[in-house]
Amino acid sequence: MVRRLARPAPQPGLHRLRPGHPLPGGHRHLAVPDRLRRPLDCDLSKAQEGSQPGHPFGFNGQGCDVYTRTVYGARASIQVGVFATLGVALLGSVLGGLAGFFGGAWDGFLSRITDIFFAIPVVLGGLVLLSVVTSATVWPVIGFMVLLGWPQIARIARGSVITAKQNDYVQAARALGASNSRMLLRHITPNAVAPVIVVATIALGTYIALEATLSYLGVGLKPPTVSWGIDISSASQYIRNAPHMLLWPAGALAITVLAFIMLGDAVRDALDPKLR
């Protein structure tokens, strides 16, 4: 029992406890190691030390446990990836889909807007827009990614809606007197959504990598938040003496991005055999 507790296993909710708080369930007198009660606490005397029992990944420059921080870093990084992708996919497919369905002036206007957004280099735009943000939460970064990311999805959604619109069954539905919203929701969307899902899945990985790059340049997430990008960035100062501090979060980041790229490939194979 004690052995199991002594492992630096992150337990949901525990990180919110303040010093002296009772543990959930009132086990105030349970002999829990102090570090487990506040897993993100640091011990400066152990700064930059390597792997040792109970701390498989060693310690970082402030003496924080790298394993704990790598596990917690998944939260911010995946949060950014998932919410940015959701925002981009929703905004992009609604705007692009409507433009493709109705065509006309709105379509032309939207295409020019997407052209403008495509010309903005992402990292450069991030430096300019995010350098004025002081908030330490993940939301400004997510908002920025949605702002620069939606045109990509909008283009794809527009293209696939235009293709789906010309199908016979859509014409049949129109002939039977279906309303615009019924045609869009019941007939076109199910047949046009596959490419959007594929691109969004692959983009999820790249957003996680982008968050890390922005954090490395000092404009992404900010220190009270724990993220792989922040940890890689702060570890890069110590890379000559203690490369392990960089390798673990970077490895977690790379594996996550790789996983989403491969998931995207698998989704494409499953949804659209023609693209293979």
Partner: peptide
């Protein structure tokens, strides 16, 4: 190529600088 795609450029850069340079 998949591995290269999934590691951000700045991580590749730091690692290559560490290995080849230092």
């Amino acid at each position: 190529t998949l591995v290269v795609l999934s590691v951000p450029t700045f991580v590749t850069g730091l690692l290559i600088q560490l290995l080849l340079g230092v």
